[in-house]
């Protein structure tokens, strides 16, 4: 309750300042929109379904791209972690590649796949693959060896061992990496969508710019932040809480 009150006060003040600045008319409305204008844009966007469609298209790309990179990243990470040679060579490469903003993969993706859905997905995958791979690799190393031994001892082998033992055992160690991967994928997707016309939230953002409609730009930006926050707050926080409950880990504050 107290927390909620603090947030309420903070956001009222923020909107208040915004309102005053807008009312002072220091900048023209196409540079600095009013809260009312942004609210209207949001309303209109949802009313004519364009926002819903954009959200659906973007989320679908996220789900496909992120799932792909989780599966690939886990396989890659496990592979790297289980091989000394790979760990020493490829481990370093992966970390250095992570400094590359994923949008840098777009020219390559466009040359390979053309201006298609695949190119966007490729950028999303590249945005999160490294985080997941590195998380899986370190998770595999940090995970106590006893779980793998106990699993083998009780008759788990190969895929069963991975699915029933190694994966759940490493989950607390890779969860933050999975979360980071999601955040990176989200950013990559929006930048990708901004660069070539393809529906989605990124394109709505660019459309706002093309139409000189600052209210829409701000509205879409708010949407992007809120969706990112909701996924983090609802999906990942829930997984985290359930893990902490099962494992008896101290809740992160």
């Amino acid at each position: 309750m107290k927390r909620f009150a603090k947030h309420a006060i903070f956001y009222s003040v923020l909107v208040g300042v915004w309102l005053i600045l807008a009312k002072l008319k220091i900048w023209p409305p196409y540079v600095f929109p009013t809260p009312r204008g942004v609210l209207d844009s949001l309303w209109a966007g949802f009313a004519d379904h364009s926002f819903w469609i954009a959200i659906a298209v973007s989320m679908k790309r996220m789900l496909i791209g992120y799932s792909l990179s989780v599966v690939l990243g886990m396989v890659l990470g496990l592979g790297v972690a289980s091989n000394k040679f790979l760990e020493e060579t490829m481990g370093g490469l992966l970390v250095s590649l992570q400094s590359l903003p994923s949008i840098c993969w777009l020219p390559l993706a466009v040359l390979w796949f053309g201006l298609t859905e695949k190119a966007i997905l490729f950028v999303v995958v590249m945005g999160s693959l490294l985080s997941v791979t590195i998380a899986m690799e370190t998770g595999r190393q940090q995970m106590p060896k006893i779980y793998g031994m106990a699993g083998r001892n009780l008759g788990a082998h190969g895929l069963k061992l991975f699915w029933y033992v190694l994966l759940p055992a490493s989950l607390p160690y890779i969860l933050s990496g999975l979360k980071q991967g999601w955040a990176f994928a989200w950013r990559s997707l929006i930048s990708g969508e901004m660069i070539f016309v393809s529906l989605g939230l990124g394109q709505l953002l660019m459309m706002g710019r093309d139409l000189n409609d600052m209210s829409q730009v701000i509205a879409v930006m708010i949407l992007i932040v809120v969706i990112g926050y909701l996924v983090d707050g609802l999906v990942f926080k829930t997984i985290e809480r359930r893990l902490q409950h099962k494992w008896g880990l101290a809740p992160a504050t």
Binding site: M149, A150, N153, L154, G155, V165, P168, L243, K246, W247
Partner: peptide, 15 residues
Amino acid sequence: TDRILIFQELGLFPW
């Protein structure tokens, strides 16, 4: 599985 070991560290699965 003809030989099952009870580990000194137990190795119960916390999940």
